[in-house]
Write a protein that binds this DNA or RNA. Structure first.
Length: 463
RNA sequence: GUCCCCAUCGUCUAGUGGCCUAGGACGCCGGCCUCUCACGCCGGUAACAGGGGUUCAAAUCCCCUUGGGGACGCCA
């Protein structure tokens, strides 16, 4: 049987970090086993589901590189199939109609709570043999005794006493199927072999197992992956910021970096930290998934991202960085950007940071803002004299390459006996306006003779 | 409240009864490199939640406690 996994988000919100990770695990498992990955949109909650959210989820998966083989299927378009299965359950006596109103059921729950028990429906209509009728729901007749258990691929055996469960609803009074019914029917009819999903579904699983059993069909394999927690160890939520994965794109993360980080969060392969996608497909396994929840650590993500930035090719980076640069209001030529990017690859943690740091490459000499405090500190009369002389020599140079510039300076230092340190910072301030930048010679070469000279001139005339 | 799940450095983790004086990574601290900021390199800091068992031997197995998370909808 071909391994088939699925990702089944409900389009009531953006694709968040936790969802992205389970999608990733499902995708990896399918790819590793040369199986199929199904995308299913669980939009049975018509009030809260929107096409915009569906599109946003699709976009996010696309950004992460999670391609699917089948789907997207929409639960809203599969209503007949659910009805068919509900009828089967009704016909076999595994399910029954219930006429209790929501208020009545709430009362039962309240009574149970009073007694310190788990709030449940008390099975009042279980033996009434009711037929269809307005306002009536269909409930599953769950065994009163015994227990329901299943093998979880990450957590081991999980079992619940049936007495803990109640006769939950399969079909609402408006005729729509509930989540638990729809999931089982979908997973069954789509041939899902491995259900890899979030931890928060563990409690639903016994109910679903009961439906499989009532339908008299074999169980798929289950793998419940732990939740991702915020730094406060609470479920990751809006107040931890950055919920949607697309926000990470906006923050300047590379999708490969996010993928790498997310996989390593809760999964490991010895001591290895960096994995290419191909390597992940080869090495991923459900057994190595950690059973406990893990805390999202932005610092480590940043580190992984900087690794990927260092190891990306300039060609890959140009279009990406270009977007961030444009956001800042600059529109450099791609060729120019391609020369600047290598200077920042070793020093930037995000693409956004990269774009922000290179601003002085895009400004004209007149637009450049000088750090006046630094100018005051470094531009002593002696230094200005040196810069003046060097300026003259630069003007005479034809070749403004890094190598030629290094020669020019070496010669000057040799002649005057001064240390490079004495003029390095002043020169940096003169050509970048600030006290930090990539190496001076690389910077000057990329900036070009004309700009370098005009900037030194402007800096010298500042005070 | 009830049920389910989980528990190694601050964080992600290695560890599947002896290789553990518990390894790696991020972070942090210190040093080196150096034209600044970074990168890089070297070194350091820091953990088996607690208590009982089982065993010649336990971070590893069992039980209890504690702590954390999740679920208890005609939401998904």
């Amino acid at each position: 049987m071909t391994v088939t996994t699925r990702f089944a988000p409900s389009p009531t919100g953006y694709l968040h970090i936790g969802g992205a990770r389970t999608a990733l695990f499902s995708w990896l498992w399918a790819r590793k086993n040369k199986g199929k990955f199904v995308l299913r949109i669980e939009d049975t909650d018509e009030q809260r589901s929107t096409p915009e959210m569906t599109q946003a989820i699709l976009d996010a998966m696309d950004w992460l590189g999670l391609d699917y083989d089948l789907g997207p299927y929409f639960q809203s378009q599969r209503k007949e199939i659910y009805q068919e299965y509900i009828e089967k359950l009704l016909a076999s006596g595994a399910a029954y109609y219930c006429e209790c109103t929501p208020e009545e059921v709430e009362k039962m729950r309240e009574e149970a709570r009073q007694k310190g028990l788990k709030p449940k429906y008390n099975g009042r209509c279980r033996n009434k043999n009711l037929g269809p009728g307005p306002g009536r729901v269909v409930r599953l007749k769950v065994p009163l005794t015994g227990e329901t258990s299943f093998e979880d691929l990450v957590k081991g055996t999980i079992s619940v006493r049936n007495a803990e469960l109640d006769d939950f609803i399969l079909r609402r009074s408006d005729g729509t199927p509930t989540y638990n019914l729809a999931v089982v029917v979908d997973d069954l009819t789509m041939g899902i072999t491995h259900i890899i999903r979030g931890d928060d579904h563990v409690n639903n699983t016994p109910k679903q197992v009961l439906i499989y059993q009532a339908l008299n069909v074999p169980l798929p394999k289950f793998a419940h992956v732990p939740m991702i927690l915020g730094p406060d160890k609470k479920k990751l939520s809006k107040r931890h910021g950055a919920l949607s994965v697309m926000i990470y794109k906006e923050m300047g993360f590379l999708p490969e970096a996010l993928v790498n980080y997310l996989v390593r969060l809760g999964w490991s392969y010895g001591d290895q930290e960096i994995f290419s996608k191909e390597e992940l497909i080869e090495k991923f396994s459900l057994e190595n998934l950690n059973a406990s929840a893990s805390v999202f650590d932005l610092d480590k993500l940043l580190w992984v991202n900087s690794h990927y930035i260092k190891n990306s090719s300039v060609e890959q980076l140009v279009p990406l960085v270009s977007e961030f640069v444009q956001e800042l209001g600059y529109t450099p030529e791609a060729d120019y950007l391609a020369k600047i990017i290598p200077l920042y690859q070793p020093r930037a943690k995000t693409l956004k940071e990269m774009a922000e740091q290179m601003h002085f490459f895009f400004k004209t000499t007149e637009e450049l803002d000088y750090d006046l405090k630094a100018v005051k500190k470094f531009f002593t009369p002696e230094v200005k004299e040196h810069l003046q002389t060097i300026l003259g020599r630069m003007q005479e140079t034809k070749d403004f390459s890094q190598k030629e510039l290094e020669n020019l300076f070496a010669k000057y230092l040799d002649e005057t006996g001064i240390k490079f340190k004495l003029i390095a910072q002043p020169l940096r301030i003169a050509i970048t306006g600030q006290t930090f930048s990539p190496g001076l010679f690389e910077t000057m070469e990329v900036l070009g003779k004309e700009k370098v000279i005009s900037r030194i001139q402007r800096a010298l005339s500042l005070e």
